[in-house]
Amino acid sequence: MTEVTEAAVCSAKGCQEPATWELQWNNPKLHTPDRRKVWLACDRHRQSLADFLGARQFLKDVVPHRP
């Protein structure tokens, strides 16, 4: 039996590009300090998504996405 996996796509609204980055974040009002949520980003949306999370002081790290 063959396993079917969906390609990881960018989290930006309406974008269907393959993800190349992981933006790791947490909301300190909701999550413990060690918890990490992940938004995926393509090269084009990496900075705008990071800016959005950074403005809220949620962004913890940006690392390459490893499929």
Rank of each mutant, 00 (worst) to 15 (best):
M1C: 01
E3D: 12
E3Y: 02
V4C: 05
V4G: 03
T5N: 02
E6S: 12
E6T: 04
A8R: 06
V9F: 04
C10R: 05
S11K: 03
S11A: 11
A12N: 14
A12S: 14
A12H: 15
G14P: 01
G14Q: 00
G14D: 04
C15R: 00
C15S: 02
E17H: 13
E17W: 06
P18N: 15
A19W: 10
T20G: 11
W21A: 14
W21E: 11
E22W: 01
L23P: 05
L23Q: 09
Q24S: 05
N26P: 01
N27C: 08
H31R: 09
H31L: 10
T32M: 07
P33K: 08
D34M: 02
D34S: 05
D34V: 02
R36W: 00
L40F: 10
A41R: 09
A41S: 14
C42M: 05
C42W: 04
D43F: 06
D43R: 11
H45K: 13
H45L: 11
R46C: 08
R46H: 09
R46V: 07
Q47N: 13
L49Q: 15
L49E: 13
L49D: 08
A50T: 05
D51P: 02
G54C: 04
A55G: 07
A55I: 00
R56Y: 05
Q57H: 07
L59K: 05
L59P: 02
K60E: 04
V62T: 14
V62Q: 12
V63L: 11
P64C: 12
H65M: 08
H65A: 12
